[in-house]
Lab assay of single mutants.
Amino acid sequence: HTVDVQGVTYHFDNPEEARKFAEEMAKRLGLQVHVKDGRYKVE
């Protein structure tokens, strides 16, 4: 499970961890979480 944050890619084994990380980063950076091709993108 992959999370892209402003061009940096993070990998997680656990989909729940990936989702939480994406939401946390989006909140911290004031950005949105998009799901695209099964990847989380924070932009």
Results as ranks from 00 to 15, higher is better:
22 A>N: 00
14 N>H: 13
26 A>W: 01
5 V>T: 03
17 E>D: 14
31 L>W: 08
10 Y>R: 05
20 K>P: 02
23 E>A: 07
23 E>L: 11
8 V>H: 11
20 K>R: 13
4 D>F: 07
43 E>N: 06
20 K>D: 11
35 V>S: 06
38 G>P: 03
15 P>Y: 05
27 K>Q: 12
32 Q>E: 10
23 E>V: 12
9 T>V: 14
31 L>M: 14
6 Q>I: 14
11 H>W: 13
6 Q>H: 10
36 K>Q: 13
28 R>K: 13
20 K>F: 12
21 F>Y: 07
29 L>P: 02
15 P>V: 11
23 E>W: 14
13 D>K: 09
3 V>D: 00
16 E>V: 11
30 G>T: 03
16 E>C: 07
4 D>Q: 09
42 V>S: 02
4 D>Y: 07
6 Q>L: 15
5 V>I: 08
28 R>H: 10
23 E>F: 15
14 N>G: 12
19 R>N: 05
37 D>A: 04
2 T>D: 12
14 N>A: 11
33 V>G: 01
24 E>N: 09
3 V>G: 00
37 D>H: 05
35 V>W: 14
27 K>H: 11
25 M>I: 12
19 R>V: 06
39 R>E: 14
35 V>M: 12
15 P>F: 05
3 V>K: 00
33 V>K: 01
30 G>S: 05
6 Q>R: 09
31 L>F: 08
18 A>W: 00
22 A>L: 01
42 V>Q: 02
21 F>T: 02
38 G>C: 14
3 V>N: 00
28 R>S: 10
21 F>N: 02
1 H>I: 11
11 H>C: 14
25 M>N: 06
15 P>K: 14
26 A>I: 01
19 R>L: 13
3 V>Q: 00
25 M>C: 15
31 L>C: 12
10 Y>S: 05
5 V>H: 04
39 R>N: 15
15 P>G: 14
29 L>F: 06
34 H>Y: 08
28 R>Q: 13
10 Y>P: 01
1 H>Y: 12
38 G>Y: 03
22 A>F: 01
8 V>I: 13
19 R>H: 07
39 R>P: 01
26 A>L: 01
3 V>I: 02
40 Y>H: 06
2 T>R: 09
9 T>Y: 12
29 L>K: 04
22 A>T: 01
1 H>R: 10
4 D>W: 12
25 M>S: 09
43 E>S: 09
23 E>N: 10
24 E>Y: 12
23 E>K: 06
13 D>E: 13
27 K>Y: 09
35 V>I: 12
7 G>E: 06
9 T>Q: 11
26 A>M: 02
28 R>M: 13
37 D>S: 04
34 H>W: 05
15 P>S: 13
6 Q>G: 08
17 E>T: 10
31 L>I: 04
16 E>I: 11
3 V>S: 01
2 T>K: 12
3 V>C: 06
14 N>R: 08
32 Q>L: 08
11 H>L: 12
27 K>L: 11
32 Q>C: 14
13 D>S: 10
34 H>S: 13
32 Q>W: 05
13 D>M: 08
39 R>V: 14
10 Y>D: 01
22 A>V: 02
2 T>P: 14
33 V>L: 07
13 D>W: 08
42 V>N: 02
16 E>S: 10
14 N>W: 09
40 Y>S: 05
4 D>I: 07
28 R>V: 11
43 E>V: 09
28 R>A: 12
19 R>G: 06
14 N>D: 13
42 V>I: 06
36 K>T: 11
12 F>G: 00
27 K>F: 10
18 A>P: 01
8 V>S: 08
16 E>N: 11
23 E>C: 14
35 V>D: 05
22 A>I: 01
36 K>F: 05
24 E>R: 08
15 P>D: 15
7 G>H: 06
4 D>A: 06
18 A>Q: 04
30 G>D: 06
27 K>G: 07
30 G>K: 06
30 G>H: 06
29 L>R: 03
33 V>I: 07
39 R>M: 13
24 E>I: 09
5 V>L: 09
43 E>H: 06
28 R>D: 06
42 V>A: 02
38 G>F: 03
29 L>S: 03
15 P>I: 09
37 D>E: 06
43 E>C: 15
27 K>E: 12
13 D>G: 10
3 V>Y: 00
34 H>V: 14
23 E>P: 00
28 R>T: 08
8 V>W: 07
43 E>M: 09
24 E>M: 13
41 K>R: 13
20 K>A: 13
25 M>H: 06
36 K>D: 11
10 Y>C: 10
35 V>F: 15
17 E>W: 06
